[in-house]
């Protein structure tokens, strides 16, 4: 939903970043307002996953230039946990397995960290169980997954559903979903996309990082950005995604080549 007067939630300006001294992002610009769904598309290696990790504060990435403003705050000076507590969420492409840590306990600690930031009371075990059971419905998840270790032995689809369950509990302001569609069969994709659609509201925003159109058939973006060589090469409406689906990414190479010459 595009409302030109909606408040800006995330403002990325000329963002540059590297990993192990290898520059990956070469000046990314992006403005996300409340109520909007953005999609960043691009080939593997275009820098789109790096963008999501830099925004979430992954320690392996170094910001070498530019600014990121989140609801008026300098996001880049905050620890990853502080970013999460004020409402930034990263759905992982490869959710991490943590043996021995119960999923339920993990979800409770995370939910309480976010609630306390907002001034809400901590939920005890019983109150949290009520909440989590209610939110399980968003991703049609079996309560049995709560008793298992975090993501351990989960299938690809179960891991992604667990990510959206976390999103449903943490109620983020800006959710970045990194390749949430990868490795999902069509049923799991529908459930995950349904969850994302249910959680979208005029007050929050979603940034979908994806390679394929098929996720965008189920979640209609307001803005589509094409990323290549660490920059956003072109932005447009949902029709841009359809154009990519038809023509592939070859024009990206031509445009990049022209940019190099120019």
């Amino acid at each position: 939903m595009i409302r030109p007067d909606a408040p800006v939630l995330l403002e990325v300006r000329d963002l540059r970043a590297s990993v192990e001294d290898q520059p990956i992002l070469h000046g990314v610009n992006l403005t996300i307002r409340a109520g909007e769904i953005h999609a960043v598309m691009g080939r593997n290696g275009s820098g789109k996953s790096t963008l999501s990790k830099v925004l979430a504060g992954h320690p392996a990435y170094t910001v070498t230039g530019g600014t990121v403003t989140y609801q008026g705050q300098n996001l880049l000076e905050l620890d990853p946990e502080q970013r999460a507590r004020i409402g930034l969420f990263l759905g992982f492409q490869y959710p991490v397995e943590i043996p021995g840590v119960s999923n339920l306990e993990f979800l409770r600690v995370a939910t309480n960290a976010r609630r306390q930031q907002g001034g809400a009371a901590e939920l005890d075990t019983f109150a949290f169980e009520d909440l989590v059971r209610e939110r399980l419905a968003v991703v049609q998840m079996d309560p049995a997954f709560l008793e298992r270790s975090v993501n351990e032995g989960f299938s690809g689809g179960e891991k992604k559903r667990n990510e959206i369950l976390q999103m449903a509990l943490l109620e983020p302001v800006v959710a970045i979903l990194d390749e949430t569609d990868s490795g999902l069969d069509i049923d799991a994709l529908r459930i995950v996309a349904g969850g994302v659609n249910q959680l979208a509201s005029p007050e929050n925003a979603t940034l979908l990082i994806t390679h394929y159109q098929r996720l965008l058939d189920l979640i209609t973006p307001d803005h589509v950005h094409v990323m290549a060589a660490g920059r956003i090469l072109r932005s447009g409406g949902p029709e841009l995604a359809h154009e990519l689906e038809r023509t592939g990414y070859d024009w990206v190479d031509q445009e990049l080549a022209l940019a190099e010459v120019g």
Binding site: D79, E81, R85, F89, V96, I98, F106, A110, A113, L170
Partner: peptide
């Protein structure tokens, strides 16, 4: 693993 937990607000 640490980053995953931190990205969920856990110090």
């Amino acid at each position: 693993e640490l980053f995953y937990l931190q990205s969920r607000g856990i110090a």
